[in-house]
């Protein structure tokens, strides 16, 4: 047990004294359904005045899909009031990953969706359950929410408006 704590202490010290980079979110590169590749650390660092709302979901998660359908219905209207980017992160693994593109196109969703097929970003951000929504602002997580009950999208839009 002592050796494990020693390992952790040494690890943290090493990090503190050696790293010089600016972005502090985990650098996880994910390919979007559109084909574009995003680095989460760069994306989070770029969230200055324009907030980025990131929603973790899966095609098999009914509350996630209900939330995203309701958000999509009002997305353009709300973005016109208070500009923000909206991005979905699908945690579908090899079983359902091939469904994601036809699923979002079939539903007419207009926002970009990143593929997190082995939950790399989900794990790096310590997201235990989906749906899970993050609001990135000024390079930080300004708000996060887990779970969905009807009307949750209204809370999200109110939060965005207030930030």
């Amino acid at each position: 047990m002592k050796s494990k704590f020693f390992f952790l202490v040494m690890m943290f010290n090493f990090i503190m004294y050696t790293s010089q980079a600016q972005e502090n979110f985990p650098s996880v590169k994910l390919k979007a359904v559109s084909g574009k590749v995003y680095d989460f650390a760069e994306m989070a660092f770029s969230s200055k005045d324009t907030m980025i709302v990131v929603s973790f979901w899966a095609t098999w998660c009914i509350p996630c899909v209900t939330e995203l359908e309701n958000i999509n219905d009002e997305l353009e209207e709300k973005q016109a009031i208070r500009p923000f980017k909206f991005i979905g992160v699908a945690i579908d693994d090899a079983r359902t990953a091939s469904r994601v593109k036809p699923f979002i196109k079939g539903k007419g969703w207009k926002f970009e969706v990143l593929m997190d097929n082995n939950s790399e970003l989900k794990r790096a951000l310590n997201i235990t359950d989906v749906p899970h929504v993050l609001i990135l602002k000024d390079g930080k997580i300004a708000y996060r929410h887990t779970g969905y009950i009807a009307g949750e999208e209204d809370n999200l839009f109110e939060t965005i408006k207030g930030l």
Binding site: M11, F12, M16, T18, A21, E23, N24, P26, S27, A124
Partner: peptide
């Protein structure tokens, strides 16, 4: 219980 720390190019956790 999961803990992660990220600083620039380095990350560690347990």
């Amino acid at each position: 219980l999961k803990l992660d720390y990220n600083y620039g190019k380095f990350s560690a956790g347990m």
